[in-house]
Design a protein around this nucleic acid. Structure first.
Lengths: 226, 226
DNA sequence: GAAGAAATGTCAATGTGACGACGTTGTCGA
DNA sequence: TCGACAACGTCGTCACATTGACATTTCTTC
């Protein structure tokens, strides 16, 4: 798999696990209740694995899930970490393609599992939900693409600043290795490292082992533009 | 509007007018027949205009339609030309957003016009069609994104070769100005021009005013990779 | 707790493409 | 037919990112 493919799937995997994705109403969830059931996952177990047939989508209720793609021999590239409210695996399911990433429980996870065999007939019966879901997918994909294109012709420094700002979780932290970050941006690890070093020297963020902490959002925002 | 936005919409507009998009079966078309009617368009008239409310989608039956976006004062950026079988305007319709491009008839055009107000209820009644349509949209968007990312990390020369190969019509011609081409690729006009000059010297293609003719597909294919 | 693996920090050399500038050629309307 | 304007062709300069190489730190596993 070449670098562009790698980046493509990294973005997709990232895109489909965002928490602001698919705002379902209560009545929607009631209707969907018949299509699945809650599952408990122990830390370290997988919700699904990359390349496997997409037989179910998951809505995460509690806990954090790590999305990653394997690469070469044993190496894993983490493409994101999602928490409560996230919907994962749905796009692969709709497209009837294998999962594009693996999803592993970080801690104890409770998720609502929607099986394809039960979900699709149910969506046919509730076309309004189906259309809302799919349109949400369209919007999400378009937003992702827009972001990719916006990042394209900027310096690595600006790209890093923007991505860190966007992806920092509620604690202002980002749990990605610099290598994964570089893959997401389609840049080299060295360039990303240099950008991070600059931003660190300017006090905009702190770096650690697989962690980036935002210390000054304003400074980062400025770095996004200039 | 900045360059990235420009490019984003150019890609989208291009993506949503491809002829291999949304293969509808006969029975599908029969069902959809109630949602619209055929319209005749004289050369030069518009099917829809950029920024207008997306109140209808079109399936082109006869004739060619040019998709373009206006830019600044009067300038237009052509993002594609589509013919029989193409579906245009549907994604904007589903997303309930304004059209992202204008569609103008080149010659006499016959198209099937599907109005939102009639289409959506009908899709609710035929959820299978709705889901197939929307999933086709998802696939299309994903393919577009993949292509964007694949083009990202290549030299302008390779990008130009690939795009020309992909987009040359049945006569081996491509009706885009070098400026439009540069916008699609997110490259500068000068770089595109240089790449075209090289390929021309190598006998892979000929260039003219707003026209690129493919003379040697094999040579172009080679240029794609190296 | 030690060895090995993975991730991070930094440097120099190299190359591609953006940008500004300018002249030429093609097209369209008066 | 001629002027205006858009598109094409080409050049030199310069900033930025990649590549490869190496040292250091942090984690993992036995």
């Amino acid at each position: 798999m070449d670098a562009a493919e790698q980046q493509h799937f990294a973005w997709l995997a990232r895109s489909f696990g965002r928490t602001d994705y698919l705002p379902l109403t209560t009545s929607d969830l009631e209707a969907l209740g018949d299509a699945g059931e809650y599952v408990e996952k122990y830390p370290g177990t997988h919700l699904f694995k990359e390349g496997a047939d997409s037989d179910a989508a998951y809505v995460i209720r509690d806990g954090d899930v790590e999305l990653y793609r394997t690469r070469g021999q044993g190496g894993r590239m983490v493409v994101g970490r999602v928490g409560s409210g996230a919907v994962i695996g749905d796009i692969a399911l709709f497209q009837a393609r294998p999962y594009i990433s693996s999803a592993q429980a970080i801690g104890p996870v409770t998720a609502f599992r929607l099986e394809r065999a039960r979900l699709l007939p149910l969506l046919i019966q509730h076309p309004v939900i189906a259309m809302r879901w799919l349109v949400a997918g369209l919007n999400q994909l378009e937003a992702t693409q827009r972001r990719v294109l916006r990042l394209m012709h900027r310096t690595v420094r600006q790209q890093v600043a923007e991505l860190v700002l966007d992806e920092a979780d509620r604690y202002g932290e980002l749990h990605l290795s610099q290598t994964s970050l570089a893959n997401l941006l389609g840049a080299s690890r060295q360039s990303v490292n240099q950008a991070l070093s600059e931003l660190r020297r300017e006090g905009a963020l702190e770096t650690g082992y697989r962690v980036i902490r935002v210390s000054d959002r304003a400074a980062l925002t400025v770095a996004t533009a200039s």
